[in-house]
């Protein structure tokens, strides 16, 4: 079941995958195949409604695959996919927390550890340490005791990234992680993602911002109408041109 058993280090393999939303007549992801290797830095582009979010939720098993086969971190995606999600981080695109939400930043970051613990196990010292570290790497440790609903949108985004880091994911899916962030935060998070990629974490980002890319080969996936229209790897400086060319 481990990644090391695989020859080519592929962590995400989709093989002619179709994904449909409940109640929808047509599939949203259609006949999509791709391979992403361990430690790759992947940018997913494409117009609004192309299916980028849907693709991320297909990869982490939150949406049902109606045809085709998916293998994530060496595990076949089947059933409710909960095992896959224990290894795969996912920053959701849209969120809103009421100011009355009774959860502090620390609580939310700790929740990142819960999936890996499974039922009946209580968080221990290692979990608290991982949460503290994750908060520090996002610079939100000073807000640890503030209810998350009382932070700004960008601060909340950082907390949710910390929540995902706390679980030590093998793959990190990020849906427009830069959308709410100021310049410094973008830089900081770009550096963070780069260092994670260096450590072998696979980074998969839906983004329209191409300026803060790390200095390493970037795997570009461009989507349109639920299919992949471009799949290539290039230098960080060429990403914008590649995305533009394929979407034209």
């Amino acid at each position: 079941m481990s990644i090391h058993g695989q020859k080519d280090n592929a962590v995400v393999v989709l093989d002619h995958v179709f994904t449909a939303y409940e109640g929808a007549e047509h599939p949203t992801i259609r006949d999509l195949s791709l391979t992403i290797k361990q430690g790759e830095y992947v940018i997913i582009g494409g117009p609004n409604g192309a299916g980028k979010t849907t693709l991320l939720e297909t990869i982490n098993g939150m949406l049902p695959i109606t045809h085709g086969k998916a293998t994530i971190c060496g595990m076949a995606l089947a059933g409710d996919g909960v095992h896959v999600r224990q290894k795969v981080g996912y920053l959701i695109q849209n969120f809103a927390f009421s100011p009355l939400t009774p959860f502090t930043v620390r609580d939310v970051v700790m929740m990142g550890r819960y999936g890996g613990l499974g039922l009946f196990t209580r968080p221990g010292d290692a979990d608290y340490r991982a949460a503290e570290e994750a908060m520090k790497s996002l610079g939100v440790e000073d807000m640890a005791d503030i209810p998350i609903g009382q932070l700004s949108g960008g601060q909340q985004q950082k907390v949710l990234i910390a929540h995902n880091l706390a679980k030590n994911p093998r793959v990190l899916l990020l849906d427009e992680p830069f959308s709410n962030l100021d310049l410094f935060a973008r830089e900081r998070i770009s550096h963070l993602l780069e260092s994670l990629a260096k450590k072998g974490v696979t980074i998969i980002i839906v983004s329209h911002a191409f300026d803060d890319l790390p200095d390493r080969p970037i795997h570009i996936l461009v989507m349109k109408n639920g299919t992949l229209i471009h799949d290539t790897t290039c230098a960080p400086g060429d990403v914008e041109a590649q995305v533009r060319k394929s979407s034209a």
């Binding site: 909960v82 939310v108 929740m111 999936g115």
Partner: peptide, 25 residues
């Protein structure tokens, strides 16, 4: 008490709880 982790995560946000690999259902 037994399902405190899961219940609090579900209360916080069901989608985030599910994405975190918690057995929500």
């Amino acid at each position: 008490i037994i399902f405190y982790k899961e219940i609090t995560a579900i209360i916080f946000n069901q989608k985030i709880a599910e994405a975190a690999g918690i057995r929500v259902r």
